[in-house]
């Protein structure tokens, strides 16, 4: 996948969540949910399909579970951001930041009410 193409929003959010450190699937979902004020709900099939795809892209890696992770009812799989993933996230962030910069220059937020 070329770094220029826009990322799928859920991929962006997953990568963003993992930028803070290794997480397992449910934790990624919860982090994204919280950070987006419930706007982005990562439903299970979408979430794990994306994780599987991101892993096969080489953007994320399976990470060892932290020693304190609960293990009841099966082991959760933890993911960490791979260097390629970090690069993709950075590229997407720059792309978005570019648009944000343009919007600022045109004072979009000043007239559109509350930030």
């Amino acid at each position: 996948m070329s770094a220029d193409a826009p990322l799928k929003p859920q991929w962006f959010q997953i990568l963003l969540a993992l930028a803070g450190g290794p997480l397992h699937g449910t934790a990624i979902m919860e982090e994204v949910l919280e950070r987006t004020d419930g706007e982005m709900k990562l439903w299970p099939a979408t979430l794990y399909g994306s994780l599987r795809d991101l892993e096969s892209e080489g953007w994320i890696l399976e990470a060892p579970a932290p020693a304190d992770a609960p293990t009841e009812g099966g082991r959760r799989k933890f993911y960490a951001l791979a260097p390629e993933g970090r690069a993709a996230l950075a590229a997407e962030t720059r792309r978005l930041a570019g648009w944000v910069q343009v919007a600022r220059e045109r004072a979009v937020l000043d007239e559109a009410g509350p930030a």
Binding site: M29, W43, L47, Y48, G49, G74
Partner: peptide, 28 residues
């Protein structure tokens, strides 16, 4: 409904995630 391989790999965690969704929804 999921393909077997996908289900084997992620099924348990999908359940877990769904339960987390449910918990969040109950809070709301």
């Amino acid at each position: 409904l999921q393909p077997l391989a996908f289900r084997r790999e992620f099924g348990a965690e999908m359940e877990d995630t769904f339960v987390a969704h449910l918990a969040a929804a109950r809070r709301r």
